[in-house]
Design a protein around this nucleic acid. Structure first.
Lengths: 119, 119
DNA sequence: AGACAATACATGCGTACGCATCTAATGCGC
DNA sequence: GCGCATTAGATGCGTACGCATGTATTGTCT
């Protein structure tokens, strides 16, 4: 059981570090940034609440708030007013965000398939 | 394959956060601190080089240097001169370190078995 | 309507990280 | 022995994190 945990730690560390290196060097994206874009593209929807994204990338609400701020500064998402609830924010992926994601996707998948046990 | 990666991320996040909460609240230890002590106790040896520990907990050399400094300040390990190579340091677990590890071990294992798939 | 808890997100603060660099000691070629 | 690359570990610096809190808005209870 500890064996399984250590294997999980090792796989996580190896894959995460490799993703960090490759994605950041080749596409100027961190693994979490990519993961957020990936989720948004995958789901097809175009509006997300901050907390919703936080859940699926396993980060705190505050971390997601800043992550979205970084993505916005990079022009990959926009933060739009939510008319029905003015406390909230809609996070929308931009076309530039889609393009960056599309460019990074092969790198992401390649790193994973190279490092994770293919079984 | 992405499925496997996401499951790995989810398990890692859940277990890591739970360990962080339980170990820190009940034993004043972080997951990495515990992992270092665990490795030292497990191997039976009493002298370790910093880099050696860095490898097995998947942290950078600088992170391990600081981690060892924290453990030393807490009295759980000692940094001893290495007579044959005066650049190096031997990291040695103290009896207090062994005691703290022994106290925390059940918590650590319990958290893991509660969260990781028992399969 | 008015007061008060609850929600959605932003932000101050402290901490741990990695990278690059520094210092000290070692080994290696000549 | 003398210089120079190499190695072990420490440290400055910038970044991202979580927790606690702040701010604005919404819902609820009376």
């Amino acid at each position: 059981m500890i064996i399984a945990w250590r294997r999980l730690l090792a796989q996580h560390a190896a894959a995460w570090c490799a993703l960090e290196r490759e994605l950041s060097e080749r596409h100027d994206l961190g693994p979490s940034e990519f993961e957020v874009l990936d989720r948004m593209v995958e789901a097809g929807r175009d509006k997300y609440r901050v907390q919703e994204l936080a859940d699926c990338v396993h980060l705190s609400q505050s971390a997601l708030s800043r992550l979205v701020a970084r993505l916005e500064k990079a022009g990959l998402v926009s933060r739009d007013m939510c008319p029905s609830d003015r406390r909230g924010v809609f996070v929308c992926i931009t076309s530039e965000g889609r393009a960056r994601h599309a460019a990074a996707l092969p790198t992401h998948r390649a790193v994973l398939s190279a490092i994770l046990p293919s079984a």
